[in-house]
Simulated scan of single mutants.
Amino acid sequence: MKYVIVTGGSRGIGRAICKKLAEETDYHILINYHSNETAALETLAEVRAAGSNGEIIKFDVGQADEVKKALSQWEESHPDALVEVVVNNAGLTRDGLFMWMPLQDWNDVIQTSVGGFYHVTNHFIQKLLHNRYGRIINIVSVSGVKGTAGQTNYSAAKAAVIGATKALAQEIAKRNITVNAVAPGFINTDMTSNLDQKELKKLIPANRFGEAEEVADLVAFLASKKSSYITGEVININGGIYS
């Protein structure tokens, strides 16, 4: 049984990715969530409605012990399961000007994005190498590419994952494992619902926010065999705001 794991899969871009992968691939979908079980179950229902199947798994990507325990227990109860695709989507924002940023806000954001990438990817990497096939897809952000005022912590975290993407891609390309990053701009989700769309649209050449489904389309392509010669890339999906 082949699986894809999507961290932070219960809402927003994560949910759209789970649904799209259910529609376009043969993978079972392992939906990670941190606290909102109801939302995770709603995502699972959408996955099943799309003709696939999967399950939900609870852990905080930023907590090493929690990740290891949850994934090890899952593997023990699914001895025939093979995770071929890892989508590191879980993220956290604690926005504020750097001069007033508490250490906790800095650490939490770094730990979720950078620590989360390490904990989840590292858990599966040896099996991917052994099987000589895999796809690792890291959801970053325009903030990690160009930097965003008021998001020094988030920009730093996503930039770190971009660096990790490029380095890891070079280490494992010979084993038919690709590592790519997807950098969304302004996308219609819960995370952006409080932003002033009318003003921000003026900055976007496409003159609109993107949809989570558009990001999911790109992820589904990168998760497929069609993308086998693309690795170490950061693909911007932002309506031209930074390209």
Score class of each variant (00 low, 15 high):
residue 9 G to Y: 01
residue 11 R to C: 08
residue 13 I to F: 01
residue 15 R to Q: 13
residue 20 K to G: 05
residue 20 K to S: 12
residue 20 K to I: 08
residue 30 L to V: 08
residue 32 N to V: 00
residue 36 N to S: 14
residue 38 T to W: 00
residue 38 T to R: 10
residue 38 T to H: 09
residue 42 E to F: 07
residue 46 E to P: 00
residue 47 V to S: 08
residue 49 A to S: 14
residue 50 A to W: 01
residue 54 G to Q: 10
residue 58 K to A: 11
residue 60 D to I: 12
residue 62 G to P: 01
residue 64 A to H: 13
residue 73 Q to T: 13
residue 78 H to F: 07
residue 78 H to I: 11
residue 79 P to S: 09
residue 87 V to M: 02
residue 91 G to H: 00
residue 96 G to L: 05
residue 100 W to G: 14
residue 104 Q to T: 14
residue 104 Q to H: 07
residue 110 I to N: 03
residue 117 F to L: 09
residue 118 Y to Q: 11
residue 122 N to H: 14
residue 123 H to K: 07
residue 127 K to W: 07
residue 127 K to A: 13
residue 131 N to G: 03
residue 132 R to K: 15
residue 138 N to V: 00
residue 138 N to T: 08
residue 141 S to N: 10
residue 144 G to T: 02
residue 144 G to V: 08
residue 150 G to R: 02
residue 161 V to T: 13
residue 161 V to E: 09
residue 164 A to R: 02
residue 170 Q to A: 09
residue 172 I to C: 11
residue 172 I to D: 03
residue 174 K to G: 10
residue 175 R to A: 14
residue 182 V to D: 04
residue 186 F to P: 05
residue 191 M to H: 06
residue 193 S to E: 15
residue 196 D to N: 15
residue 199 E to P: 04
residue 202 K to R: 15
residue 203 L to V: 10
residue 204 I to L: 11
residue 209 F to N: 05
residue 212 A to L: 11
residue 213 E to N: 12
residue 215 V to I: 15
residue 223 A to I: 13
residue 229 Y to E: 11
residue 230 I to S: 12
residue 233 E to V: 13
residue 233 E to A: 14
residue 235 I to V: 12
residue 238 N to Q: 10
residue 241 I to K: 06
